[in-house]
Amino acid sequence: MNLFRLAGDLSHLLAIIILLIKIWKTRSCAGLSGKSQILFALVYITRYLDLVTTYISLYNSFMKVIFISTSLATIYLMYSKFRATYDKNHDSFRIEFLIIPCVILSLVINSNFTVLEVLWTFSIYLESVAILPQLFLVSKTGEAESITSHYLFALGSYRALYILNWIYRYYAEGHYELIAIFAGCVQTILYCDFFYLYVTKVLKGKKLQLPA
């Protein structure tokens, strides 16, 4: 565990907490993509199956349980409790266009052809693109509430911090996982446009509005 990794994990946790607080306090999930949340739940479930096979540390197991349970709680809030506020018409991204290529890619490019390893690889590929329905929703409506922007910023920062962690681990421990590094870079690149808008608009107190 190094500082970048810890900061990345905490940023990830912060993103999820911001999201849950936003939904709970405003009693609304307007502006949020349920499809992205379904993809994230799928990511955590397929990646953390090793919870039952491999023990790494208390921290590791605890965070995995938190990520799985909070993602399921978010889906429950969006599709059941606050369903009436869910912006279904704008959340029209076809997630099969992301899931199917990730399934194929994980079957072809993986480090070991076992069930757990392929599912882990699938989750890494899927995570890199799971935010696309949310970004698509923001681009369709042309704006995002500032709380949604904070959520996206924290979520995007997490993988960017992981990249620093991977660089550190490569030099300090000689450890690297090419699949995770490649997908993590793709994931971070997808957020770049949003990061730019966040820094130039939201941090200056303006609403995140896309240029017409």
């Binding site: 990794r5 994990d9 990830h12 990646r47 090793d50 491999t54 790494i56 540390s57 590791n60 965070m63 995995k64 990520f67 480090s111 070991n112 390893e117 882990w120 992981y162 962690n165 996982e177 995770a180």
Partner: peptide, 10 residues
């Protein structure tokens, strides 16, 4: 030492 198959990151 962590086995490379045991992914120790989240």
């Amino acid at each position: 030492k962590v086995d490379p198959e045991d992914h120790d990151e989240l």
